[in-house]
Design a protein around this nucleic acid. Structure first.
Lengths: 233, 233
DNA sequence: CAGTGGTCTAGACCACGAT
DNA sequence: TCGTGGTCTAGACCACTGC
């Protein structure tokens, strides 16, 4: 583990544990240098990560302060598996696997190529508080992962990629639009009336620049909420 | 201007100008050190900003590469005035000022206090391509800005805060939900049928930690699109 | 004035990828 | 092996805040 990562993790733990509550002042750069016996740039890097993640704010001449945090609900600005999300938010969640089959990536993903992209299609329904609220369709490219026969209920797709296959997920590009629920949405989410759904389409990239998967996540609009932290540049 | 900011801006300009197209390799740390006569950490800081903004990706042992970019539409993960957004996207936009009046901050903003917060309410309608698609309600706290008499059409609220009043905007917290259009939405956005709206509520903070304003931005759902770059942590 | 964060330097050693 | 990015050091000077 890096030194700055270690310092970052300890500070973050202290923030989450309430040792540094709202508006509390974190140790200064020099205090961290002494505490961890590191150079100043190393301690600064640890704190810079916390700033980046929206946990603290640095004010020149005054110090580093914890920002009032309502924790995220559905994440847009970072990449996270649904399993990770559910664990972080302590959701009462259950996932049903609807189907796994071979299919080309649908053209509405607009990947800018004429060729067809063979993939494994995985359809899942996410239940929160015993209510089906999200339909996920993943298209995992056969060029990267030739075959997915089954999905363990205890394993997320990301865990499969990262732990079993040794791939490193690096970033994603997401588009968010609102659409009318289609017949399949209504069937899987057990609604009859016309309803809006929030559609989040992502392309997920590996650290070597290859795309590994396309995902379409359709959320019941009346159950959707996202909280984001935004910085001014 | 900082050295790293200068280097960052030049590299970004070259990316946007197409001098570094998709998947092109940027100069290495050492090449930038020589070109700009700076220390390595300085050149690295410039490139780190580009990584942070989602323009490039660094791969150990290989280099720094431009990421395929569809530019953002509506921003969620950073703080930007509508005027800045319109300029960046070269939108055909026009804003109508509907009203300026004194009003307390509505309680649905959930600012966690029992007291009433006196504010100046500013209601504006944003037209894109001659179509009214966004209704913005800003509540600027009187505790920070005692009075706003008029809004120049050439000035955004942020410009007023930053340039005229010398305040520094630091960050915002946004919640995104989907709601049914209310009567005022329909009237101002010239629709009659039932329709969904994307509601983005923000609290905007100054660099001293004070809240300066609450904003509710209501978007016609069928005209809303957001593209976000997300990193895996 | 002392304490804080912001920038910058000129090195060092390491891990990884390509050749 | 060489070039790349990743981490780290031990300083330096500056600008800003609060006392």
């Amino acid at each position: 583990m890096n030194k700055y990562q270690t310092i970052h993790d300890e500070l973050l733990k202290d923030i989450n544990d309430g040792k540094y509550p709202d508006n509390a002042k974190l140790p200064s750069d020099f205090a961290l240098m002494n505490r961890y016996h590191v150079a100043r740039e190393t301690s600064r890097k640890a704190v810079a990560m916390l700033v980046d993640e929206g946990y603290v704010i640095r004010i020149k001449g005054r110090g580093t302060f914890v920002i009032n945090q309502n924790r995220y609900s559905f994440p847009i600005s970072h990449v996270e598996s649904y399993r990770e999300l559910a664990a972080r938010l302590k959701l009462d969640e259950r996932t049903q696997l609807i189907s796994i089959s071979d299919k080309n990536v649908p053209t509405y993903f607009d990947y800018g190529e004429d060729t067809e992209l063979p993939a494994t299609e995985i359809i899942r329904v996410r239940n929160v508080d015993n209510e089906p609220v999200i339909v996920d369709r993943d298209y995992v490219l056969k060029a990267v992962v030739p075959e997915i026969k089954s999905l363990s209920t205890s394993l997320s797709l990301f865990e499969l990629f990262e732990q079993q296959l040794g791939l490193v997920i690096s970033y994603a590009k997401k588009t968010i639009t609102i659409e009318a629920a289609n017949a399949i949405d209504k069937q899987l989410m057990l609604v009859k009336e016309p309803m809006a759904v929030v559609v989040i389409r992502s392309e997920t990239f590996l650290n070597d620049g290859r795309i590994i998967s396309f995902t379409e996540s359709r959320h019941r609009a009346d159950r959707f909420k996202s909280v984001e932290f935004s910085r001014r540049h």
